[in-house]
Design a protein around this nucleic acid. Sequence first.
DNA 1: TCTACCATGTAATCTGTTACATGATTGC
DNA 2: GCAATCATGTAACAGATTACATGGTAGA
Lengths: 186, 186
Amino acid sequence: MSIKFAILGLLHYKDMHGYRIKEHIERNFGNMWSINYGQIYPNLKKLETEGLVTKKDISQINAPNKKLYMLTEKGRETFTEWLFTPPDRGMLIRDPFLLRFIFFGFGDRKSSIKIIDEQIVNYERQLKKRKENIIKWEKQDVYVRLMADLGLNFNEMMLKWLNQARAEINKSSDGDLANAAGFFSD
Amino acid sequence: MSIKFAILGLLHYKDMHGYRIKEHIERNFGNMWSINYGQIYPNLKKLETEGLVTKKDISQINAPNKKLYMLTEKGRETFTEWLFTPPDRGMLIRDPFLLRFIFFGFGDRKSSIKIIDEQIVNYERQLKKRKENIIKWEKQDVYVRLMADLGLNFNEMMLKWLNQARAEINKSSDGDLANAAGFFSD
DNA sequence: TCTACCATGTAATCTGTTACATGATTGC
DNA sequence: GCAATCATGTAACAGATTACATGGTAGA
């Protein structure tokens, strides 16, 4: 249900069409949020029938026609109401790397470290990008800027942790696995 | 698809039945991972037909009968193969609070701070719990212990960020919103 | 010519969530 | 008597992902 509100939020800044909405989400939140046309176009239609947005067909000469969506008064109200209703659930994190990580004790140390190293490379690349972009965010509204800060903080924390994990795994012996049975206490 | 591997992973420690699997995931990863019977029981059945686990009916006198699942050799192999295939995607975070946060510029400062304060309370409660549990993890295998560390680090980072955000928002004026239009540069 | 980008959409599929049904035991 | 815990399951629904279809323009 939240994509609907993400769209309504973005339309506060500017009238937009589906393609641009996806592009925008990917550019700005792509490292942690994923979206696709299969969600956007049906949701735009639904928002229109619910009277939260209106549509305007725009013909273009050097590009395919597009459909500009803009907020209605009702859309603005619905959004504002949602904005300050306390979030119904906590943060959900799903990471195929971390899911593997907790079970690395069932494999060999070498392979674990290989996968961890790949993660370090990924997060380092990401951090570099974030640092390049931070200037862009610096002049935006407080909230957008703070979100960019969070991204940086998160990235730095992950790298610190990954490196610490790598070091500890390196010095540990393979036999440490045996202790894991105590993981279960019933 | 990853719940299947999570189950296979847990069965490495101990033979288990569906109810216990859910309990376990909730107890240990409940702050970031959610699971329900609608996923567990069908997946256990599927794993059985695929020959990755076998089932044993256990009758109990003072409790309902249960179905113990245990790994097969094929299950163990399939799991190990998965364990060291590089993760196909990055981390996905979905948080109804953060989704609201980026749009707080479209509301009033007072309401924003109220929601932020609620988050601070939540994360403080969580941090307290994590600190209590950390002793329990300390004697586990390296990877499980490191995961617990990550949870702590994450929690502390979020709290630091939330408090910093709160302070900055407090001293900012409502008019700062106007700048947000530059968020879009196309 | 081929690739990339612009732009909209749908169908099939897969995943995840909620709600319901069943029923025994234990503790307050 | 009531709530909680143990235990298994299904059906309906909601949400997300993948793959496909269409077709124009710009640039290498």
